[in-house]
């Protein structure tokens, strides 16, 4: 087997998504490399090697260099690479949970630790299709109790007052 066959066969073994991700990261690195003089405040000390730009440039150059083989495979052997990532399809359950959890930090700040944990644990378990409603509520209540005890009672971690209390106080006063 020759070297080009070797490269082609390794391209066939690996789904195209790997090369696409590598190439996207490589392109982002190249874009950042090109934009670095404007994205980094260079009013720092001279000479260059003491400045803030040298290490990011090295980091981005490493990223770009690492993506070159993937980009080459993508350009030369893309027709021979496998299409799907791993045959498991789109992760709808994970995507639903992730979308829900993107709202969780806002709820944490607005309605506080206990209420947000209970709501989002129950909603998360429901979205992922876990068991009957009563069981879901029970597990959510347990999670809330455990987090309250761990963070507030044992570790004495300070959480700011929920934003909703300010709203209520504002409306009342």
């Amino acid at each position: 087997m020759s070297r080009s066959d070797d490269a082609a066969s390794s391209a066939e073994e690996r789904p195209r998504a790997h090369d696409v991700l590598a190439a996207v990261l490589g392109l982002a690195a190249v874009a950042l490399l090109a934009g670095s003089p404007w994205l980094v405040d260079r009013s720092g000390p001279e000479p260059f090697y003491k400045g803030p730009l040298i290490f990011p440039l090295i980091a981005l150059a490493i990223m770009a260099a690492g993506s070159v083989p993937a980009a080459v495979r993508l350009l030369l052997f893309s027709a021979r690479t496998a299409q799907p990532l791993d045959g498991r399809g789109f992760p709808w359950t994970a995507a639903r949970l992730f979308a829900l959890m993107c709202c969780f930090p806002f709820a944490l700040a607005f309605i506080g630790l206990e209420a947000s944990t209970f709501l989002f644990a129950a909603a998360g378990l429901h979205l992922t299709g876990h068991g009957r409603p009563l069981l879901v509520l029970g597990i959510a209540a347990c999670m809330t109790a455990i987090l309250h005890v761990a963070f507030k009672l044992i570790l004495d971690v300070w959480f700011p007052a929920p934003g909703i209390l300010d709203l209520i106080a504002g409306a009342g006063g």
Partner: peptide, 24 residues
């Protein structure tokens, strides 16, 4: 290599301690 470089780059984001320059 990509991930090492990416990790290095992530560590540079923000104010650079020695020069106080803003980066990315």
């Amino acid at each position: 290599l990509i991930l090492i470089g990416f990790g290095f780059w992530l560590s540079t984001v923000g104010i650079d301690g020695p020069t106080l320059s803003a980066r990315y």
